[in-house]
């Protein structure tokens, strides 16, 4: 009896945005009297981080500190329409809407600053730290706080902006399937290293090496969270999970976490992940969506590594010890 090691590779692409488009999102931005910015959405944060990344995009476009931007999701009375959080669309769609709203708000902010400084708005730049000044003359400037105060109490102006992003819906040609399904594609390659116990059929994923191309990584730490969490879900899908263990037979469906199996903290693999960036042509600052795709290359990489380790090709998910043992029996010529 032996523990057999193997290595497998898989490479994938994944579309950003709702398939065929037609999925708009909107954002509103306004400055408070003291130069904070509030982004109003009806968008949902499931943990993927739109509250964070949305604020980063707004701060970048407005030229103000990240800390001065707030997102308080989500309420249909105050937040404009958003199609929802799915289809790896949030950063791309909502991000684009926020960027558009922030551009409009920035224009007003620079106009008010120009009036206050008695210069041309075109000569002004933001320093990203809360000040606006004449390009090349940092001393000739004004705090965003004072611009907001002046806008409210002297000029009667609202520093605000509206943004919306829509990729118009593509219709499918029924005969050929001709269509425009995506805004852009992100990419990933995973190399999985596994160990198969040929006595128990048990698989241990030893290491996963992941390379991701996700356009521009808006927040690399958050992208890394998706990669690591998704790789774990990939191990889980590949080896453990199903609500119907004898599919298509409906019997023995799990009802709790002691029956529905997933890897625990002791079953995680060593991870080595790298991000490369090819900014997209239509995402905010070149972003693509990464949220969904991160389990996709790990699953077949593990399946291929299992074959490499023990010669058993399991073509149905999940790859349970039972399936591996049956495969090993078949290889050894034993009847099942």
């Amino acid at each position: 009896m032996a523990r057999l090691k193997g290595r497998g590779v898989a490479a994938v692409n994944y579309p950003t945005g709702m398939n065929l488009g037609g999925d708009p999102s909107q954002a509103l931005i306004h400055a408070t009297t003291t130069g904070s910015f509030v982004i109003t959405l009806s968008s949902v944060d499931l943990g993927q981080g739109i509250k964070t990344v949305g604020a980063q995009i707004a701060a970048e476009t407005l030229g103000v500190p990240y800390e001065s931007v707030m997102i308080d999701t989500a309420d249909t009375d105050t937040g404009p329409h958003c199609m929802g959080t799915f289809a790896s669309r949030g950063t791309h769609r909502i991000g684009n809407a926020i960027m558009m709203a922030a551009k409009e708000a920035r224009e007003v902010m620079m106009c008010v600053a120009a009036t206050e400084l008695e210069v041309d708005a075109g000569d002004l730049v933001t320093d990203g730290k809360g000040r606006i000044h004449v390009n090349g003359a940092p001393d000739k400037g004004i705090a965003v706080l004072d611009v907001a105060l002046a806008a409210h109490f002297k000029h009667g102006k609202t520093i605000s902006g509206r943004g919306m992003y829509l990729k118009p819906k593509s219709e499918v040609v029924p005969e050929t399937g001709e269509m425009d399904p995506d805004s852009c594609q992100a990419h990933a390659c995973t190399i999985a290293e596994v160990e198969v116990d040929d006595e128990t059929g048990d698989v241990t994923v030893l290491k996963m090496t992941n390379a991701y191309e996700i356009g521009r990584a808006m927040n690399p730490a958050l992208a890394h969270q998706q990669i690591v969490g998704g790789a774990w879900m990939g191990i889980s899908h590949a080896l453990y999970e199903t609500t119907e263990p004898y599919y298509p037979n409906r019997a023995h469906g799990p009802l709790d976490f002691s029956e529905y199996l997933m890897p625990g903290p002791g079953d995680i693999a060593e991870m080595d992940s790298v991000i490369i960036e090819r900014p997209s042509s239509n995402g905010p600052y070149g972003a693509k969506g990464i949220g969904e795709m991160t389990a996709n290359s790990p699953i077949p990489a593990i399946a291929n590594a299992i074959f490499d380790a023990c010669g058993v090709r399991v073509t149905s998910m999940p790859i349970t010890p039972e399936k591996i043992l049956r495969g090993l029996d078949a290889l050894r010529g034993n009847p099942n």
């Binding site: 981080g49 509250k51 964070t52 905010p284």
Partner: peptide
């Protein structure tokens, strides 16, 4: 870029 591309702390 100044903020985009930075691993700023999660807002939540």
């Amino acid at each position: 870029l100044s903020v985009v591309g930075e691993s700023v702390q999660r807002a939540d």
